[in-house]
Design a protein around this nucleic acid. Sequence first.
DNA 1: TGTACATCAGTGAACGCGCGTTCACTGATGTAC
DNA 2: TGTACATCAGTGAACGCGCGTTCACTGATGTAC
Lengths: 219, 219
Amino acid sequence: VSASVDPAEQSATPRRRANQRGRGERLREELLEAAGALVAEQGDARGLSLRAVASAAGVAATSVYLHFADLEELKVALAQRYFAEFAAARDAAASSITDPAEALIVRCRVYVQYALDHPGRYRVMFGRDVPPLHEADDAAPTPSRSALDTLAESIAACQRTGAAPADAAPTGLATLLFSCLHGQAILRIDRPRFSWPPLDHAIKELVTRLIGLRAPTRN
Amino acid sequence: VSASVDPAEQSATPRRRANQRGRGERLREELLEAAGALVAEQGDARGLSLRAVASAAGVAATSVYLHFADLEELKVALAQRYFAEFAAARDAAASSITDPAEALIVRCRVYVQYALDHPGRYRVMFGRDVPPLHEADDAAPTPSRSALDTLAESIAACQRTGAAPADAAPTGLATLLFSCLHGQAILRIDRPRFSWPPLDHAIKELVTRLIGLRAPTRN
DNA sequence: TGTACATCAGTGAACGCGCGTTCACTGATGTAC
DNA sequence: TGTACATCAGTGAACGCGCGTTCACTGATGTAC
């Protein structure tokens, strides 16, 4: 039998002080933050487990059930945050630019740059780690859908001002461009050892050729 | 105590008849086939476990160690097969076509079509299921490298014959085109509910615009 | 021609691990009387 | 003003599962003498 130890000195964490009544939602927040930290650390959401998230949040495994029906629901909530933040980053970068061609290029560059800066988040949004994200169809107002629409609108603006020829429907071009951006993003993330050309140049080249921008924008 | 049963009638598989001496390699083959079946069934290699593969091959879990140091080694062997087969499919489709522009388009279409036909294989080759595949760098003679080179050569042929303007280096264009093809492939696989335009049209549009093919090839 | 032995191909029990999920519980705080 | 009770927020032990890995083993076949 071991000698008794002053409880205050024990390394095992004591029982967590419960949140104030009515503030139970704070734990929900902490769980999402803990999950986000794990995603950033591991580069994807495959290692996320109920127990791992709970432990990272300093909470009993069962406490996750207080706020999420299961791990998947937590992942979906996480993905939704990421989508919102991602869209905000693109909008913020493009909003101050008046030239439509330049705005389109900046929007595309920020898209891929965000993926490179946050590979874990990007994989959560566009990878296979969160199955429910793949079950939405085309017409539903999903984040991908609105990303596509924004891109199409940006392309349409180029066509209206004559910066690009109106030789194809903006939505079709947006679909094509979107898939190319995704390819750039995911490949640069997944194959970091490949000697990629500078992102700025690659994006400008891609957009110019794909959309048919009349003249290269000034640097 | 249950009544004794005629051993020949027991459902439990009896001990496997060992391969002939010197033919131990046959089990290696069977393990790869079993793993391939699981990949085709599940759509990726994440569910692959040593025990699952062994069980699918009708063999004790420990028997895998007779041919592979661990599961990762088996996955790498599987990926290598897929790469070889994939490259062969592209070469076969493009080999009979003399017009360089058409050959390039066919090559690209077959690329994406193969991915759609074998999503599991494609994810094994280009996803994150087999970590070692990502550690090779640029110059190494990896399958991706040679895919890229073949694509560059196909583009160069278009430029030589005047089917495309020589306004950019073929290798740079190949990198760009490759990432776009990957984006098309992986997105069409991962987001099957999205109403994608017909593959033929999308690929022709993509290649025409990106490489700057002079005139649309005849249908 | 016979026999002991080495080698090959594969088995099966056991281990410790992290996992999701269940269940009854604890302890603080607010509320009704 | 006091007290019983309901509610909220979170705990912790226990379960059965599939996993990778270890270890000593089995049984057939070839080979040396």
